[in-house]
Design a binder for these strands. Sequence first.
DNA 1: TCGTTGACCGGATTTGAAATCTGGTCAACG
DNA 2: CGTTGACCAGATTTCAAATCCGGTCAACGA
Lengths: 244, 244
Amino acid sequence: MAEQDGPTDAFVARADRILDSAGELMLRHGYRKVTIEDVARGAKIGKGTVYLHWRTKDDLFMALLARESVRMVEDVAARLRADPEEVLPHRLMRMTYLAALRKPLLLAIVTGDTEILGRMAETEINEVGAATNDRFYDVLTDYGLLRDDIPNLPYALRGATGGFYVLDRVDPESALGPEAGADALAHVVRAAFEPARRPRRSVLVGAAGALIEVFEDLIPPYRAWIYYQEPAGSRPRDRKKGSA
Amino acid sequence: MAEQDGPTDAFVARADRILDSAGELMLRHGYRKVTIEDVARGAKIGKGTVYLHWRTKDDLFMALLARESVRMVEDVAARLRADPEEVLPHRLMRMTYLAALRKPLLLAIVTGDTEILGRMAETEINEVGAATNDRFYDVLTDYGLLRDDIPNLPYALRGATGGFYVLDRVDPESALGPEAGADALAHVVRAAFEPARRPRRSVLVGAAGALIEVFEDLIPPYRAWIYYQEPAGSRPRDRKKGSA
DNA sequence: TCGTTGACCGGATTTGAAATCTGGTCAACG
DNA sequence: CGTTGACCAGATTTCAAATCCGGTCAACGA
């Protein structure tokens, strides 16, 4: 059971070293200027070895972003376990905002920073992520933590929060500290999207549990995808657009 | 009195023709690819004539953006006169949002669209604009149309609304019509920034009047700046950074 | 035997110098 | 004297040569 067919062992550790190297370089130089050889050198392995983990440079960097996302989700889950009150939408959004400010790669993802992400910005990371997003809203709405009388709630919520992520980039001198910005964001979410009455604690505990479950469903497939990418040998897999 | 020293006459009409031409071309090709010669041809005048109105290409396009902004302000003022209830912040924001969607140049300004604006995006249009912004908030707060218990209100408001302007560009498939988007924006503003109790109508009338006054103070200097730009002859005006 | 590697390939990107374009001026024109 | 377009220098574009880099695979060594 310990390792039935998953590559569970030093293989994953090496993958992590590669991703660490890639992450560091990506933040310093941006997607475009980072070469596979640089990444390999940073991880102290040969260039070819990288291709034992991912089939293309894109796959490697997708995996990097995915790992970053998974880590944040794990972090949120941990906080929910520690304090179920964190499930209140304005607390969740506050938490996410601060996490993004702290982790530059996350901020790059959410703001679609083309400079850093390069072509990553275009590709759709969110196949399963989108589904999770739906379940996320469903849970919060079902437990009555989000008002149910708001049309296009996901759109409205994204609109109301998205500006905060971009504001500092557009107008850096209006700044404010991370905490103050997070507070402003939290206020908006609470006032505009949460019901007037604070839910009972038992509801919060239930919602937190349900959310944690959603997250735990999400993580394993993501991890699998990050660390075990069909190592290039299996099927030819038509690259590029070749007809016939 | 009709024309004491202001160039009030066919001069302004010609300036408008030039700006019309510039606006059309700017939307079609973006700042970079539009040449002064193109603009002049579009206005059916010689190239040199453009320089009788503005000293540089930048000044010309700044004037264009300023004219667009002034027109919007005039439009808002007109609506306030027609219906003082429009002074409610969520109505104001709704109005502004729809106006921006309708006028591509305004949208480019507010979203900082580098493609269209070119270097215009960097320059600070808002010397006097910033001051007006402060007065704008003061009026709304003084009349009790904005909650006074929100820290960093301007920041929060920009954050909460800014996302809506950018959303469609970041994720075009989440779309929604202009009306639905505007409604979502209005909901957020009302719920998060307006006091719970609706103000009495007399207050609204007063606030609307005060705002109109602010706008009317703003417009003339802007108009002057747009249409009469110190026609290049007066003082040498050190161009570029030349020492001594 | 099999995991690892780096020399190697061709397509993509960068470089830089020559060619072209364009913002701004001003002598001349009407 | 209001208007203009030829003209200038500096900025931008072009395009081919030089370089770089993602991805492969024969060879190496544990």
